[in-house]
Amino acid sequence: MTRILAATTVALMLAAGAAQAEPVAYTWTGYGTNVPGSGKCPTYKMVIDLTVDGDIVKGRFQQDGRPERTFETTLGKNGAIKTAAMVGGGGLMDVIGQIKDGDSKIKLDGYCVFEGKLTKK
């Protein structure tokens, strides 16, 4: 009886592990658009990468010539993403997006706006 219970427990654990989805990686590369008071954003190239593991979203972004920055959040209702990330000089970039099959997108809004459709890696 103990062996049967142990075997059943192991089988259930294996089945639960197999049912968990693998992390999914996304990327976007593009140029910014100006916000009031800025004029050079269309010359700033940004790379945004993020990984979704269950409902945990971890991201990194890097503008050419600037340090890499990171953010972490959880998926909200309907795959929504919303958080803020620190940038140089104590500033913040709003991180807004959506992870949805066939319609994943990201937007960094701060000193410039960087936004576009995410593609799976």
Rank of each mutant, 00 (worst) to 15 (best):
N34K: 14
R60P: 00
T51H: 00
R69C: 00
T74F: 11
K58P: 00
T73N: 14
R60M: 07
K82Y: 12
C41K: 08
V57G: 01
Q63Y: 05
Y44C: 09
V35F: 08
D94R: 15
I48F: 10
M46Y: 06
G39N: 15
D49H: 11
Y44R: 08
K100C: 03
K45C: 01
K58W: 11
V57Y: 00
P67C: 02
R69Q: 12
G76M: 14
D103I: 01
Q98I: 10
L50D: 05
G91T: 04
T70Y: 02
P36G: 11
T43G: 12
I96H: 04
G88S: 15
P67Y: 02
G90I: 10
L75P: 01
V57W: 04
Y44P: 08
D94F: 08
G76F: 12
R66F: 09
P42H: 03
A80I: 01
A85Y: 04
I99P: 14
G32N: 11
R66M: 06
V52I: 04
E68V: 14
F61G: 02
G88T: 08
K100Y: 09
G88P: 01
G65R: 09
V57A: 02
G91W: 10
Q63I: 04
V95D: 13
M86L: 11
D53R: 10
G65P: 06
T33S: 14
D64K: 13
A85T: 12
E72G: 02
I48Y: 03
I99E: 13
G90C: 09
N78C: 03
D53A: 06
G76Y: 13
R69D: 00
G76Q: 09
V87R: 03
I48S: 13
V35G: 07
I96Y: 14
F61M: 06
Q62W: 01
T33W: 07
Q63S: 01
P67L: 03
I48A: 09
I81M: 07
K58M: 12
L75Y: 06
K45N: 12
K77L: 11
G90R: 05
E72W: 00
T70Q: 10
D64Y: 04
G89N: 10
K45T: 12
A85L: 09
G88M: 10
N34E: 01
G54W: 10
P67D: 04
I56V: 08
N34A: 07
V52E: 03
R60E: 05
